[in-house]
Design a protein around this nucleic acid. Sequence first.
DNA 1: CAATAACTATCTATCAATTGATAGATAATG
DNA 2: CATTATCTATCAATTGATAGATAGTTATTG
Lengths: 180, 180
Amino acid sequence: MTSDKARQIEDVAEARIRTGGYRAFSFREIASEIGIKSSSVHYHFPTKVALAARVASRYTDRFMERLGDPWQGETVDLLGRLVGAFRDALREDGKMCLCGALGVESADLPDEVAAETRRFFGKTINWLETVYGRAANGTSRDENRAKAIRLLALLEGALLIALALRDDSLYDLATAKIPR
Amino acid sequence: MTSDKARQIEDVAEARIRTGGYRAFSFREIASEIGIKSSSVHYHFPTKVALAARVASRYTDRFMERLGDPWQGETVDLLGRLVGAFRDALREDGKMCLCGALGVESADLPDEVAAETRRFFGKTINWLETVYGRAANGTSRDENRAKAIRLLALLEGALLIALALRDDSLYDLATAKIPR
DNA sequence: CAATAACTATCTATCAATTGATAGATAATG
DNA sequence: CATTATCTATCAATTGATAGATAGTTATTG
């Protein structure tokens, strides 16, 4: 199992990336925050790329676990879970979605990190497509995909704007009417 | 008037920020790209903060100029201008909206740069509120504001996702049906 | 059981590269 | 001569990364 220190390192790295992106965390900063030396961080994660990729992978796994099975439950509740996940990112953490933060600098990221970022968006869009597909009232597969991307875009964008303008209420304003 | 070199410096800085955020540009990198020394960049812009703030300010001004007068023309055309501005950011530049890129790291930015980022979102939302307000069919001011934030969020998010997944068509898919 | 080998987790010390910034010289322009 | 725009040279700080030492723990083996 993952050691406690490794988990602490991941936690600090995740918080920093969500606040300032990939370039915003350093081994020394993480180390000092948890009371060890930077070389000890390298012991747990050999490179910066490896640490960031691991953080992104963990984030995606936890996110999908929180969303749960898209085949179980009411559409409105399923969509509510996604909206709630982003709301909590804002209201509880005051931070961006990790993969949103990484996504904007996608072209500048090491391949391995960019690939993990794509995995997040791919899985989340698939999940949403399934949800919309179940409630299919004659909507085409393309239209379900469009709806999925539209909702995810709305949520990432609403989070971004609420953080930039430092006004949490903007997120609720933007997501009060969830498109079905 | 702004000298030619100053404009070149701003251009390179803008491109770098739009690709990788505030931390992604350096005086030396900009200098070498336009064939001067980093100290000469400091001659035109004393600090990194000053350069980034100037780039953001210029970006907002150009953006608002492109959107034009929200009191002139048809709603569909006005909204189309905004959608088109973001589409061009993606298809012509292959880059994020500058203030979207800065917005995600807002909490990590120097005050002056964060303030300029807020100015972008404030002005763009105001512009959209005016557009929606004109076509008011009994919609409240709050509802117009919500619609404004929703559209801007959708566009920033769609741009982000298209860049992260490296698939430009996702932007068109998300914006094919512009909410009115 | 006792000796030892191996593994885990940390440390100190150091490196080369990059960064933002400054001082001061130089040259061209008007 | 003053202004503008560049240069060289340099600084202190930060960065990702590595080498090698040191304990503490666990496993193996004679």
